[in-house]
Write a protein that binds this DNA or RNA. Structure first.
Length: 153
DNA sequence: GCCAACGTTGGC
DNA sequence: GCCAACGTTGGC
């Protein structure tokens, strides 16, 4: 049981999109960074908590939580030539990229801006604040508790 | 849209 | 294996 922060560009896929998934979950595909891939493939397990983060938009920050409902399996998008995440160097025998499934858990009553997280000394070691570009990143239990207590849901 | 940070590619 | 060139991320 561990905690993570997943980034998404809300114009592409937002916490509201996740909250309204008819199937009750979504495939977290399209991860094309090796460090993020390794976390997905090797460390993310069912039941893990996810801080859902909106990036590359007007209001960047943590907007809610999700839960991992299926552990890593080969990302189908890498095999589909018509998909934007197609990878010609990947094969079904030797998949290069992995995805997990996550389900909506909560939406905060208001977004927790990145700038606010930066003001909290207890979060100074948070990966988000030190290594901004990683799209799948570990969150400590203490960080999870603190962040999820900042807002009502 | 700018630009800093950082990841990836590819020649040698 | 090094490193320059290039591409991408992502905050502002």
């Amino acid at each position: 049981m561990a905690y993570w922060l997943f980034k998404s560009e809300p114009d592409d896929y937002s916490i509201d999109d996740l909250a309204h998934e008819k199937a009750g979950y979504t495939v977290w595909d399209g991860i094309r960074n090796y460090q993020a891939r390794n976390f997905l493939r090797d460390n993310v397990v069912v039941g893990d908590g996810v801080l859902f983060y909106h990036s590359s938009c007007k209001n960047v920050g943590v907007v809610g939580t999700a839960e991992v409902v299926k552990a890593a399996y080969p990302d189908p998008a890498q095999f589909d030539p018509d998909n934007r995440y197609f990878d010609s160097k990947a094969s079904k025998e030797a998949p290069r990229w992995y995805c997990v499934d996550i389900a909506f858990r909560s939406a905060f009553d208001s977004l927790i801006p990145l700038a606010e997280l930066r003001t909290l000394p207890a979060l100074s070691d948070m990966v988000l604040l030190k290594k901004g570009r990683l799209s799948i990143q570990p969150v400590s239990k203490a960080e999870w508790r603190l962040v999820t207590a900042l807002r009502a849901t």
